[in-house]
Amino acid sequence: MKGPFLRSPQSTRGLMIQVLIAATPALIAAVVRLGAPAAAMIVSAVAGAVAIEALVHRRQLGDGSAVVSGVIVVLLLPATTPPWLAALAGATAIGLGKAPWGGLGKNPFNPAALARAVLMVVLPAHFFAPMWRWDAVTAASPLSKEVGATAPGWSALILGDVPGCVGQAAPWTIVLGGLILVVLRTIDWRVPLAYLSTIALIAVVLPGGARVAGHAPWLIGDPSIHLFAGGTLIAAFFLLTDPVTAPMSATARVGFAAVAATATMAIRQFTPYPDGAVLAVLVANACTPWFDRVTVERRITPPRAKRSRG
């Protein structure tokens, strides 16, 4: 038997556990702010994801990736989501986002982002109607184009006094979790850095004339809302960093994150959807094979042409 006989301590299962640890502060913040309904959502979504995984890939259950998908999909759901919908989201993540593609490592799109996007289309009432609710107060996302929404300050954005999805309960907990992942080297630090800096750059340089009618005027020239509201931080640290759906080479991942940032800002600027992050993740995921082709696959020398005789 030949070497190497040593192995990095980092295992696939370990990576999943690290993601769960990193998501824990955000989950705690959600339960603190929303109470029992949030806990019910987390349990239902994880149960939905694990149930489908057990049905389809029983032997892969131990790697923990189904639990991760269940937890991340909760972060993307509106605060008013009933438990049955959370369970459906978890089940969709695995049942549509992962299992049909052949299980772990084979899916082209991030399962949680795909589930959230599909349900948003299928059940729009639950995603747009009473929008977001904190402390029994219904309000619009600062990213929404409705008249009447107001511009929050920096502290409100970071501490989470801004309507949004479950993962928005306290944005600083997402940043904390992301830093945990960077320090543990679970994720590539280039991805969140490239994504967030591109978003900030676009927000600053975006010309006022490009905005659509009814667009909240405070979104022009101010990167803070774009960075902290909506799913920006969740996408930066938990969705785009999914190894399965991101390009394989480090340089390609920077371009991939920039594509996601551009798509996020384009959706926010030119469509009626308040938040583009989740859809932008899917757009970037779709570009991954291309990124792999122009970076990693390009390094392959084509087989030598057969020498002709004579």
Binding site: L15, G103, L104, G105, P243, V244, M248, S249, A250, I300
Partner: peptide, 20 residues
């Protein structure tokens, strides 16, 4: 376990081979 396409092998290869 199944490959999760994380690209760590590609980054680690000292001669830059697309290992998988």
């Amino acid at each position: 376990q199944p490959c999760i396409r994380c690209g760590r092998c590609v980054d680690a290869c000292p001669v830059g081979l697309p290992v998988p």
